[in-house]
Amino acid sequence: MLSRLAGMDAPLAILNTENKKGLALISAPLGYVIAMLAVPLAAILLISFWTQDFQTFDTTPTLNNYREAVTDPLYRELLFRSIRIAGLVTLVTVLLAFPIAYFISFHVAPSRKSLWLFLITIPFWTSYLIRVFLWKVILGFNGVLNSGLQTVGIIDEPLTFILYNANAVVITLAHAFAPFAILPIFVALEKIDRSLLEASQDLGESKLSTFFRVTLPLAMPGVVAAVLIVFIPTIGDYVTPRLVGGPDGLMIANMIQVQFLRLNNAPMGATLAVIAMVSVSLIALLFVALNRRYLRGPR
């Protein structure tokens, strides 16, 4: 109360102390992110212009790593494959997730919504490594799925197209990132004013056209968020391609790891990391730009 009265006399001074107190409080987490993320990322960028000779860096700036990265067919293939797989994972995940988010938002009683959301998030919090490994066990040649289907008598020969290829990577990642896609879409759907849907139907639209002309455009901010939040981390996934991808399912992160930990070529690894990050950012920006008209409007 006192502070408010004082504030009337000197609003600027109050604003100034507010500013200082806020900045003082935020400086700890901000400083941490700068020291542990911004500085290391800058270091990665710097090193990508260096070369390495066993343990020592040659710090003469050069573009050779980048030249090699864009001309070597192996690196190119890995990068394009990562983008392709991440894109496919995103498509599958978001398409599968949308009906769930819609169901929870529109057809679940408000008191039970948080229970549904909790049920969906639980598997996500359990060990990622174990989950990916379980998919390997499920999809394997003598795995759970094949042996199960054979025991029941649906198939005679084990299915071979489901492990050690890009399909397996897509299935596994779509499973792992499900809640990431559901939550933002759910939040966007919850914000939709239900009277708009009634108005649309009162004005003669069918249920289906109401969905496509009212509900979906209003849910687009959530869909865009879901796409970004699935696409960006999946492109750098290491565990899934390594465990279930086989030689044709390996992605750029596997090569980055090999460069850093096996080949002792940190500059090349750094270059690939920079290229991957730049590609992801460009694709993400392009995607946001394409959906600009859905993202404006009243909040």
Partner: peptide, 24 residues
Amino acid sequence: PIMGFIMVPLVLPEIIVAVSLLVI
């Protein structure tokens, strides 16, 4: 922007966080 920046590690691929920390 500050709050957004602090949340960045949430969406960054973990391999990027890992290798950049390793280097530094």
